[in-house]
C-alpha cells in the first residue's frame, strides 16, 4: 500500500511488566520478529501477544480502542518519550517504519502519583475524569437552548476554542511533566470554554474548582518546563496554560474579596 515499500524488521523489546497496582514490576525482554514496517506500534504488540498466548504466557496488557488517535486510550513511554519518537502522534498511530532493524525499544507505562498502575502498561487515569466533573462543562440542562445561530462567534475565536477542544485526555502531558502536572489538560478545557461566550459566564469559578481538584488528586504544579507541549499528540499549546492562569488568578482575587 505504502509509497515506500514495506519491509520486515526485528526488534528487541524491553517492556514493563507488573501484575497489579501494589506489586513490584520490572522490565522483561521479548524478541519481536518479522515486523512489517507498515504495522502500527500496537499491531506490533498484537503480534508479540499472539505468540505469548500460544506459549501459555501472559500477554502484555495495554489500553487501546479506536486505534485512530482520537479516543485517548493508548499511550506508553517509548524509549523515554511519551507516545514514542514521532511528534504529534499517539502510540496507535506510530508506525513501525520509524524504527530500524535491530533497534532496542523500551516501553514503560505513564508514571505519575495520580495514575496508579492497573497492570503492565495500563494505568488508572480516572483522576482526569474527576477534574472534568469538578467543572469542565457549561452548566446547561437539556432543552431550552436558544437558536444555535443566536450568538455569532468570530471564526478565529471558534478556531482557537476548537484547537483547545482537541485534547484527547490521554495523559501524556502528565507523564512527560517532571512535576506530573495536569495543567495542559486543565488549561485546554478551561480555555475552550472561556473563549466561547456561552462558557465565559462560569469561567472564573470553573478555573478555581478545576485547579483545586487537580491539586487535591496528587498532580504537581506547573513550573513552565514545556515538556507537555512537546509530547502532546494533539499539539495542545502551552498558551492554554497562560489563559488558565489568567482566569485562575483573576478568580482567586475575586474570591478573596468575597465576590462569589
Amino acid at each position: 500500500m505504502s509509497a515506500n515499500a514495506s519491509k520486515l524488521i526485528n526488534l528487541t523489546l524491553k517492556v514493563w511488566r507488573q501484575k497489579g497496582p501494589d506489586v513490584k514490576g520490572g522490565l522483561e525482554t521479548y524478541e519481536a520478529k518479522d515486523i512489517s514496517t507498515d504495522m502500527s506500534f500496537l499491531e506490533m504488540f498484537d503480534v508479540v501477544n499472539e505468540g505469548l498466548i500460544l506459549e501459555g504466557k501472559d500477554p502484555i496488557s495495554f489500553d487501546h480502542d479506536c486505534r485512530e488517535g482520537i479516543c485517548g486510550a493508548c499511550g506508553a513511554v517509548v524509549n523515554g518519550r511519551a507516545h514514542g519518537p514521532e511528534e504529534g502522534t499517539t502510540l496507535c498511530q506510530l508506525h513501525m517504519r520509524h524504527f530500524d532493524d535491530g533497534d532496542v525499544v523500551v516501553v514503560e507505562p505513564w508514571r505519575s502519583k495520580a495514575f496508579k498502575i492497573v497492570k503492565d502498561l495500563v494505568v488508572d487515569r480516572s483522576a482526569l475524569d474527576k477534574i472534568i466533573q469538578a467543572g469542565g462543562y457549561i452548566s446547561v440542562n437539556t432543552g431550552g437552548a436558544p437558536d444555535a445561530n443566536a450568538i455569532p462567534i468570530a471564526q478565529e475565536v471558534s478556531d482557537l476554542a476548537m484547537d483547545a477542544a482537541s485534547c484527547i485526555g490521554c495523559g501524556a502531558c502528565v507523564a512527560s511533566c517532571p512535576n506530573a502536572s495536569a495543567m495542559l489538560f486543565v488549561g485546554a478545557k478551561v480555555s475552550q470554554l472561556k473563549l466561547l461566550p456561552q462558557g465565559d459566564i462560569e469561567s472564573a469559578k470553573r478555573a478555581v474548582t478545576m485547579v483545586e481538584t487537580m491539586d487535591s488528586l496528587g498532580f504537581g504544579n506547573c513550573t513552565n518546563e514545556g515538556e507537555c507541549e512537546v509530547e502532546c499528540p494533539k499539539g495542545i499549546s502551552i498558551t492554554n496554560i497562560a489563559r488558565l492562569n489568567r482566569s485562575y488568578f483573576k478568580a482567586r482575587s475575586l474570591f478573596k474579596k468575597g465576590v462569589n
Partner: peptide
C-alpha cells in the same frame, strides 16, 4: 441548539 449551548466549537 443544545450542542452550541454546551460549547461545542
Amino acid at each position: 441548539d443544545q450542542c452550541v449551548a454546551q460549547g461545542i466549537p
